[in-house]
Design a protein around this nucleic acid. Sequence first.
DNA 1: GCCCTACTCTGTACACTGTACAACGTGAAC
DNA 2: GTTCACGTTGTACAGTGTACAGAGTAGGGC
Lengths: 250, 250
Amino acid sequence: MTNGGDPARTLALLWRDEAAIPRRGPRRGLSLDQVVDAAIAVADAEGLAVLSIRRVAQALDTSPMTLYTHVPGKAELLDLMIDSAYARMPRTGTAGRPWREKLTAVAADNRTLFRDHPWTIAVSTQRPALGPGALGKYEHELAALDGLGLTDVQMDDCLTYLLLFVHAAARTEHEARVVREATAMTDEQWWAAAGPVLGRLVDPDAFPLASRVGAAAGEAHGSAYEPEHVYEFGLGRVLDGVALVLPRHT
Amino acid sequence: MTNGGDPARTLALLWRDEAAIPRRGPRRGLSLDQVVDAAIAVADAEGLAVLSIRRVAQALDTSPMTLYTHVPGKAELLDLMIDSAYARMPRTGTAGRPWREKLTAVAADNRTLFRDHPWTIAVSTQRPALGPGALGKYEHELAALDGLGLTDVQMDDCLTYLLLFVHAAARTEHEARVVREATAMTDEQWWAAAGPVLGRLVDPDAFPLASRVGAAAGEAHGSAYEPEHVYEFGLGRVLDGVALVLPRHT
DNA sequence: GCCCTACTCTGTACACTGTACAACGTGAAC
DNA sequence: GTTCACGTTGTACAGTGTACAGAGTAGGGC
């Protein structure tokens, strides 16, 4: 999705490198920040699927091709959007608190990011666009793992693992909401439509465990996936897993 | 991505409901399985981004609109593709082995699925298309958690948690490969291009932890994300986390 | 054996995407 | 004052899912 072209060009944009801005020609009618902010506004309000160059240009009351003088392409625009979202996301201060609280706060901050800007869930973070936002985020999150007796590599491992979980949980939660809105059907309505047909087509005795456990899980949390429960259960297991890596298991 | 229209219609297709096949009209030149298999072949070979109704029709040497007599739309086609992949994925037998081995095998089988059919990573599994493949998969995976003293709800929780991790790990691994191929650049080449520019633009003292830990992690596993390491480390933590849920911690 | 009609197959059409390209006007540097 | 780098813009291309309408086919009822 992202990672468009020349890394050097993208970095110059991310860090607003003054050496890269041209000295000749007409004045620009728009600043880079205006373009990025408009793109974020569109993505927030209407989703990544609706985000298009034409749509952003429309929001800025200019022509689509004008944007290409500010940004090399859509991929780089996404890089800039992500870094801007990183720079503005919450960074809860937890200095002096127990490590479990610190990591819970890091997870919560990331969850807030994914909820406020669901489009961040879908863009790749491989070869991250290392802008000021991404670096500030990484620095802040590493602080939660500092001083626990972990090696540098272990700190990175644990953080990667934690964020992998939060990202995945946010993705399923977001998918659930998208499906609900796209089908204009709650899970209850969906099951009401699917259940009887399923009952007619499939023999429960052929899938005894699936029938029993599926029914129990469906009854426990409202019918299907309960994102809140997935997150709470998962985060608990993640922290338990990390605890065993710490020199003093606390 | 998936979850198109009428659940009843989709279920009838998934279970190949004979009551739903029409009795009148000309003979069809194609079977549903041919359509699904052709779509899977295209997605395997060329990726989900290239998978289009026109492309599948071309592979079957027919016209695009013909496919719509077999399948209501692209969403339902994806449901059918997924269920077919589920039905054919490996199900390693681990009866009588310790629970850790069982869950490791479940994770490995899913990882194999995601590697053999990377497009399965990107399609939503919310409100899963409950076809024979999905049910068989669920039944088999629950067996790995049976008899450990867990409640039904806990069995579902632990399985969901494990699969969430494998899915997320597979996603980052796949993204890394896509980025590498799309940019025609190895991570080393990318860093060689980005590193010096980054060094010129950013002051390491402003991000002390990030600089130190990032460098250590980059040096430990080749430059950036090492998917194999992420998987091994993560799976270990997942199993440690699950262990504490078991009545007898073993 | 015949007809009706449910069905399959297909070409065309619409609104949408990212962005290459070329033409035109602007304004800073020499 | 001239030059030419640069910003702005309209048009164009190849692609997407699928609605719709027309044409041809064959099973069920008589």
